[in-house]
């Protein structure tokens, strides 16, 4: 049961990230990796919010599965490396700084919002 919840969450989270990335590329162009940035921030906020939920099953489905697969560290790192290799060093540095700051800020907001609910 627990494994199935993680499988289900992961099977939804990863394609959501893929579709968000495609939408962001269509909207903002290929320069800055807005898609990965936005899903990482949104998933971090949602995981923060989930700290207000007690159910282990909800955590496995939406936390470990959905948020875990919606957000990504590997694509974030690879895109940062590609920006650097393509001569966009400023974008590479800003991608790291903005992702860490906004991701951490989003978690913090989510945790505080969960505390208020």
């Amino acid at each position: 049961m627990n494994w199935l919840l993680v499988v289900a969450g992961g099977a939804v989270g990863a394609p959501l990230r893929y579709l968000a990335d495609r939408a962001a590329r269509a909207r903002f162009g290929p320069g800055f990796p807005w898609g990965t940035f936005l899903v990482n921030v949104a998933g971090s906020f949602l995981l923060g919010l989930l700290t207000g939920v007690a159910s282990v099953h909800v955590h496995l489905l939406l936390g470990t599965g959905l948020c875990g697969a919606l957000t990504t560290y590997s694509t974030f790192s690879y895109e940062t490396l590609k920006l650097y290799e393509d001569g966009e060093k400023g974008y590479a540095v800003r991608n790291v700084a903005a992702s860490l700051a906004a991701g951490l800020g989003a978690v913090w907001l989510g945790v505080r919002a969960a505390g208020l609910l």
Binding site: S44, G68, T75
Partner: peptide, 18 residues
């Protein structure tokens, strides 16, 4: 996009840091 993206996570990293 699927395996590596789903295996690695930014949200858990953020929550653990927080």
């Amino acid at each position: 996009t699927g395996f590596c993206g789903g295996f690695t996570t930014f949200s858990t990293y953020g929550l653990e840091t927080e």
